[in-house]
Design a protein around this nucleic acid. Structure first.
Lengths: 124, 124
DNA sequence: ATGGCACCTGGAGTCGGCTCCAGGTCAAGC
DNA sequence: GCTTGACCTGGAGCCGACTCCAGGTGCCAT
């Protein structure tokens, strides 16, 4: 019998998302992930939707959004379509922070490169 | 009598560097800052060099260098001129990480913007 | 001379975000 | 029928980086 390709074992999700199994369980515990479905034996079986949501979580985490704010976003998503304007607002605010982050990083990087240049100059 | 412009009180350093007083003391405790000079009353008096070093620390921190690595860098600086090639290597490795960080940020930002675009589309 | 403020110390506490552990369950292959 | 491996649970532990606290000192303006 073909495996059901629309469900994923914890191991597959670890592989796909790069989150550790402990982190996945932690995210479920705190409610960042909705209660994940289980098979007869009580083992988690993730849906394609879960994977998609985890992709979003990965984006937000990697861009520095704190878990508390991701929780707020998760609640908006669960509350239904009428929260879409709020979700847009939240993501736009975050996008602005990411932009500022990049600008700051670039600025500091310039200073570091200047320092490297200075070291090169004195060591020649 | 004119104040000695080449020395700074803790308050002035907080002002200049944006580090909190507690953070400055913490940095001194762990050796990220060399023992800071004191006045007769035992209060810290920072030199222009201290301020300069704190500027470097600010750059490295803001670009995500962990304290442990800044400590290694601080040791190289203290060890003298002959460590300049090592310092260059350390900073270049860090510069590469910053570059990767920016690239990752940009990539994730694109995904977030796409999500915003999607939300806009469905809410119209 | 007194009150307030900026500063001092050592040590404990906090916070975010995981990560690890002990002890247990199932399913499948040898 | 037994081992192996992937998974389960609740709860404790850890790590980095601060941040706060209690109790004390010294200087300056009223």
């Amino acid at each position: 019998m073909l495996p059901d390709m629309s469900v994923f074992t914890p191991g597959q999700v670890v592989e796909e998302t790069g989150f550790s199994l402990d982190t996945l369980r932690y995210y479920e515990r705190i409610g960042l992930l909705e209660p994940v479905g289980r098979n007869a034996a009580g083992q988690r079986r993730f849906t394609q939707d879960d994977i998609g949501w985890l992709g979003m979580v990965r984006c937000l985490r990697d861009t520095g959004m704190p878990i508390a704010e991701m929780l707020r976003f998760a609640e908006l998503v669960r509350a239904g379509e009428h929260t879409i304007p709020d979700r847009i607002a939240l993501l736009e605010a975050h996008d602005r922070r990411v932009e500022a982050q990049v600008a700051n990083l670039r600025e500091k990087q310039t200073a570091i490169r200047n320092k490297i240049g200075y070291y090169r100059a004195v060591s020649c």
